[in-house]
């Protein structure tokens, strides 16, 4: 990892500390600054409210010229989070072809929060969940809440 990337990560961390989105906590290890642990409370107005989610944000060697990688360590029933052991979230600005080097980590955190409030079913990684979200919202809400109880307490 280049000096420039480290400098940038430190800068981003400083900014996140100053302006942490509500309901978030960042665990930053200076020895391993390329892996952030993020503790996120399910936003009040969302079906995930009450849940506590653990996320990992990994900065690639080429950061900031490649996007950070976001993955949910806590299982979550969500069309934009892969339903496997990776729990990866990859859409919008996090996509390698849409990522812009000036993008800020704070905006990434906000994007995550927004997606919990309003999933983006048109850009889903889990088509079946997205389908359920669109077609059978009741069932979706039920499963999602159920998973919060089961995995995210």
């Amino acid at each position: 990892m280049s000096a420039g990337a480290k400098k940038r990560i430190m800068k981003e961390y400083g900014e996140c500390m100053k302006d942490t989105p509500s309901g978030m906590k960042i665990n930053f290890d200076e020895q391993n600054m390329t892996e952030w642990e993020i503790l996120l409370d399910g936003p009040e107005q969302s079906i995930y409210s009450g849940g506590h989610f653990k996320l990992k944000m990994t900065f690639p060697t080429e950061y900031p010229f490649k996007p950070p990688v976001v993955s949910f360590k806590t299982k979550i029933y969500h069309p934009n989070v892969s339903n496997d052991d990776k729990g990866s979230m990859c859409l919008g600005m996090l996509r390698p072809d849409e990522w812009k080097p000036p993008n800020k980590v704070v905006s990434v955190l906000r994007l995550i929060q927004t997606l919990l409030i309003e999933p983006n079913a048109d850009d889903a990684i889990e088509p079946s969940i997205a389908n359920e979200y669109k077609e059978n919202r009741k069932e979706f809400d039920k499963t999602a809440k159920d998973w919060v109880k089961r995995y995210a307490k």
């Binding site: 996007p67 390698p96 072809d97 990522w99 812009k100 080097p101």
Partner: peptide, 10 residues
């Protein structure tokens, strides 16, 4: 600009 100029991979 955002998609075709600033994006990291374009």
């Amino acid at each position: 600009c955002s998609m075709n100029i600033e994006a990291a991979q374009c």
